[in-house]
Amino acid sequence: MAQSMTAERATFTGAEERSIQLRNVTKQFDDVTALNDINIDFAPQKINVLLGLSGSGKSTLLRHINGLHKPTSGEVVTLGTEVHRAGAGKLRKLRREVGMIFQHFHLVESMSVLENVCTGKLGSLAGPRLGLFMYPREVKEQAMEQLARVGLADKAFQRADALSGGQMQRVAIARALIQEPKVLLADEPVAALDPVSSATVMNLIGNIAKEDNLTVVCSLHQVEVALEFSDRIIGLRGGQLVMDRDSHSLSLKEAHEIYNAVAVVTEEEIQEQAPELAGIAGEQHS
C-alpha cells in the first residue's frame, strides 16, 4: 500500500526520482533485531514523520538513510546513491546533501556558535580546521546567513553552551542548512525541549522545508505534533512497519487509533515480549 501511494504522489508532483528507497532492510545488533524487513519509499519535498516508542527502530532507520548504519541485509538508495554498498568516499559525497539534526543537538559546547555552524560544511572542505579562522570567508558568511535565518545572528560569537536548548537546536538546524541539503533527517528534534521551544523548532523545520524544497524524515513520539506538522505518518513498532498514512486526511479519532497502533502495549505482546523475563523470575524462586 505504501509503495503504490508514494509512487502515485511522485508522479503527481512531477519530481525527478524518489528521494529515498529502502528495500527489505533488516538490521541486527548482536541478537537484537532493530529493523525487520522494512520496505519504504520517501517522495521528494514531503515531510515524513516516523512515529513510535523508543526502541521501535526510528533512529536506526534514520541512520540507514545517510549510511551511519549499514543494513545487515537489504538495500538503501538515497538520492541515487546505493548506501548499502557505498565506500567512505561515496558516503561523504552523499552526506553533503543530507543534513541531520539530533535529539541532544550534538553541538561542541566549548566552540562558538558560528564555528559550530561552519563545521556543517566540513564535508565539502579538505583537511581538518583548527579554529574559526581556518574556514574560508565564504563559508563563514554562509554560516552567518543561516544563523540569521534561524534567528540567532546575534549569538554567533557566543559559546554554544551559553544557549538554551531551543536555541541550540536552532543552531544545529543552521549547521544542517549550511550544507544546502536536499534531504533533512531529524532524530527526535524536540524530545529534549519544553513545549514552547518545541513549537518554535517544529515550525522552523516546516517553514524551511517549504522554502528550500527539502525532503524531511523526522522521528517523533508525540502524535499531536506529528499530525500537525507532517504530510505522511509512518508507524514503527519493534522494528516493523505497522502503519503508513497520509496525514492530511486524518481525523483526530483516527489519530488516536494510530497512537494505539504504535504506542499501546497489548496483553498478547507482554506474553510475547516477556517470556524470558518470566522464566528468569521463575528460576529465582525455585
Binding site: 543534513g99 581538518p128 550544507q179
Partner: peptide, 20 residues
Amino acid sequence: GPSEAIRAAGGARWQWIQST
C-alpha cells in the same frame, strides 16, 4: 554526539577528530 553530527555532514575522520 558532535562527532556523529560531523560524520553525518560528510566530515572525514581527521576533520571530526579535530573539530569535536
